[in-house]
Design a protein around this nucleic acid. Structure first.
Lengths: 365, 365
DNA sequence: CGCGATGGTGTTTACGTAAACATCAATGCT
DNA sequence: AGCATTGATGTTTACGTAAACACCATCGCG
C-alpha cells in the first residue's frame, strides 16, 4: 500500500489546447459485440438486440448471449451508439464559480432534472464571467459530446460574442438573451422592489445598497431596480457600495457603513455579503435590527440561521434549473425554435428578524 | 415574444429508464466532412487534416476548406471522433448533495483540473449516499461517454456493491476503498485530533460532539476520532448528538445543548451545524466563546464571517479535487493500476474567535 | 539528366453499433 | 396438404472520422 501525506503543490501541465484532438493512445475499449457474438455462437445483430430490446430474442438465446456478455465483461460502446443515433443523451452546462451560493443549487436542479429525462450533464465552470472565458468554455464544450447547452450567467457575453456552433440548441439563465436564445431568469426587479419596499414601509427614510460586481448582470439589475424604486418613492438615493458577492467584501464595506450614523437600512445584493455586513456591525457594537435593518438576496440555507435570522429575497433556484432543462429538451427533442421564449421566475421576500422600524430618534447616535 | 411568470409546479415524466436507448429521432447533425469536401473540391481526408493538423495541407487548399467549413457551418462530429480514438476526453463524476458545503468546492476543483488536462466532466448528483442510489448513478454514468470515473463520497456503498464496468478507471474520495480503488481523502482523524486537542488545551474538562449522520463515512470517522481522543486523554466521553449536516439540525440540537450547563465546549462535525448551534446559543443568551467554545469542520467561506468568527478545521477541497483528477488520468492515460494507492490530504486548524478557556467557575450558571 | 526523397493529396479501410432487409423455420388456416 | 403469416435470426449497410497506405508531382543531388 502506498500511503502518503500530500504536502507541496501539484505540478500541472497547462497543455491540451482547446482544438487539440485526443491523444492517439488506443482506448480501454473492451470486447465488442462481435466478441460476444462469437462466444455465444450468434450474430452480432442478435447481441445488439439483447442489449436494446431483449424481448426480441428467444429466452434461451438471450440467456446465452447474456452469459457471454458477463463472461467477457461486455459493455456497449457509447461512442458507436452515439454515432449511430446522432445523440449523446448529454447536455452541456456552463456555470460560473460553482462553489458559490445559489449557482450550485441551480446546477443541482439542472442535473436532477436532466437525469429524470435520461440525460447526463457535462459541466464547465468558468472562473470569471468574462466574454473570453465564456467563449472558450463554449468552444470547449461544443466540441464535446453534447446535444444542447445551458449557460448559467452569461454575464457580459453578448449573443454576438458567443461563437456557438450552428444547430446547437441553447438555453440561458439571463434575460438579456431574449430574442437570441430562450431564457429563464429570476425576476430581479420584483425581488428588489419587495426588499426595498419592505424597508421603506417599516419607516426607514431611505435604503442603502451593498451591490454586486459591475460585471454581473443580476447585480446591475438589482442595483438599477433599487435606484429606480427609491426615486419612484421620492427618497434620497445614497451612493451604492460595490462588493464582489463575497462575505469578505461585505465585511470590508460594512466597516465603513457602520461608521455612518445615517445608515439605518441596508439592502444587500446577496446573503453572503449580508453575513459579512453582520460581522462588521457586530464588531461595531451595532445591533440588528434595532440599529440597522438588513435584507439579503438568495435565501441560502444558512440565512435562516445567521444571528439574527436574515430577512431575504428567496430565489427558486430549483425551479429555474428544472425550467432550463425542460426548455432545452423541447428544442433538442422536438426541434422547436423557441428563441424568443422567456420565463420570469417569481421571487418571494422571506421576512425574518433582521428588519424592524428605525429607532424613533434616528439617526443613530 | 413569450413572457410568462411561472407559478405552478412542473409536470415531470419519470420515464427514460436507465437501460432505455436514446429515442430514434434523427440527430441535429449538420454537414459532415464529405459535404465540406465536396464544396471545397477536395477529398474528405483533406478536410480531416485541416481540422486536426492544418499544417499538413497547403495554405491555399487549407483556406478553401476552411471557407467551405464556415459556409456550411461545419463542426466535427464528436461521436465519430470518439469512436475512432476510443476516448471521450470526458470523466464521470458522482457527487452527493452538490449544493451543500464543501462538496461543491471539490467538484469545482475537479472540473477545473480536468479542464486543464483537456477533459470535460460529466456530473451526476445523487440525493442520498445509499448504495442503491450510488449504484444507479454508476450504471447511468458508465453507460455514458466517459473514460474514467470519480466518486465523491461513496459512503455506504462498498466495493462489492458497486457494479462497475470492467476496465473503467475509478478514483474515490473515500479511504475505505483502499485496495479496491485508489483514494484521496482528508485526514479526518488528524483534523479531529487537532480540534479536540485545542479545546482540551484551553482547559475544558471535556468536549461535546455534534456529529453528522450515521450513513456518512466522514461523520463516523470524526465521531470515532473524537471518542478515541477523549478516551486517550482520560476524559469523560459525553453522548454525541446526531445531526444531518444541516444548519437546521445544528440549531435543533443546539437548543438542547444550551440547556445543559455542563457543556462548555462543542466540536461540530461541520460548519453549517456550528452555525445552527450559534443561533441556538444566541437565543439562549449564551455567549461564544465566553460561555461555550465552538469548533467547526470544513472552513466554509462564511466561517470567518460568522459572529464570532468560527474556529474550524480547514479542508483543502481544492487539492483533493486536483489529486483525484491527476490520479484518475494516470490510470486513463497510462493504463496504470493504482488500486492500492491512497493519499491522505492534511488539514489545518484555523483558530479564530469562537474558542477560549472555560470560565473559572465552571460549570456555567 | 535520371533517380530517390519529399510533400501534398486521394483511396481504402476500420472503429462498434443498429436499422433495413433477407432468410428460414414453425405455425395457423382453409 | 398447401400457402400465407409470423417470429427469430443472419447479412448488408451506413453513421463520420482518421490512420495507413498509395499515388503523383516536384525538388535536390550526383
Amino acid at each position: 500500500m502506498n500511503i502518503g501525506r500530500y504536502a507541496a503543490g501539484v505540478p500541472l501541465d497547462d497543455g491540451a489546447s482547446t482544438a487539440a484532438p485526443p491523444s492517439p493512445g488506443k482506448s480501454r475499449s473492451g470486447p465488442s459485440m462481435a466478441d460476444v457474438a462469437a462466444l455465444a455462437g450468434v450474430s452480432s445483430q442478435t447481441v445488439s438486440r439483447v442489449s436494446t430490446d431483449p424481448d426480441k430474442v428467444r429466452p434461451d438465446t438471450r440467456r446465452r448471449v447474456q452469459a457471454a456478455m458477463t463472461e467477457l465483461g461486455y459493455s456497449p460502446n457509447t461512442a458507436a451508439r452515439a454515432l449511430r443515433y446522432g445523440s449523446f443523451e448529454t447536455i452541456g452546462l456552463i456555470a460560473h464559480r460553482l462553489a458559490r451560493t445559489g449557482e450550485s443549487r441551480t446546477v443541482e436542479a439542472v442535473v436532477e432534472a436532466a437525469r429524470r429525462h435520461g440525460y447526463t450533464v457535462s459541466l464547465i465552470d468558468v472562473r470569471s464571467p468574462s466574454p473570453t472565458d465564456v467563449d472558450e468554455a463554449v468552444a470547449r464544450l461544443s466540441h464535446q459530446a453534447i446535444d444542447g447547452l445551458i449557460i448559467i450567467r452569461a454575464e457580459t457575453a453578448t449573443p454576438a460574442t458567443l461563437a456557438l456552433p450552428p444547430r446547437l440548441p441553447v438555453v440561458v439563465s439571463d434575460s438579456r438573451f431574449v430574442g437570441h436564445h430562450p431564457a429563464v431568469a429570476t425576476d430581479q426587479t420584483d425581488g428588489t422592489r419587495q426588499a426595498v419596499g419592505h424597508l421603506l414601509e417599516l419607516g426607514h427614510r431611505t435604503v442603502h445598497h451593498l451591490a454586486g460586481p459591475e460585471d454581473s448582470a443580476p447585480a446591475e439589475q438589482r442595483l438599477t431596480a433599487w435606484h429606480d424604486h427609491l426615486v419612484a418613492a421620492g427618497r434620497e438615493v445614497p451612493a451604492p457600495w460595490r462588493g464582489d458577492w463575497s462575505a469578505g467584501s461585505g465585511y470590508e464595506l460594512g466597516r465603513h457603513l457602520a461608521e455612518d450614523p445615517e445608515v439605518t437600512a441596508v439592502f444587500c445584493a446577496n446573503d453572503e455579503m449580508a453575513a459579512g455586513l453582520y460581522r462588521a456591525l457586530h464588531e461595531a457594537d451595532l445591533r440588528v435590527p434595532e440599529d440597522v435593518s438588513v435584507v439579503g438576496f438568495d435565501d441560502i440555507p444558512l440565512a435562516e440561521h445567521l444571528w439574527p435570522p436574515l430577512t431575504t429575497v428567496a430565489q427558486d433556484f430549483h425551479l429555474i434549473g428544472q425550467l432550463l432543462v425542460d426548455l432545452l429538451l423541447e428544442q433538442v427533442r422536438d426541434r422547436k425554435d423557441l428563441a424568443d421564449h422567456r420565463t420570469l421566475v417569481p421571487v418571494e421576500l422571506v421576512v425574518r428578524s433582521s428588519t424592524a422600524a428605525p429607532r424613533l430618534s434616528s439617526p443613530r447616535t
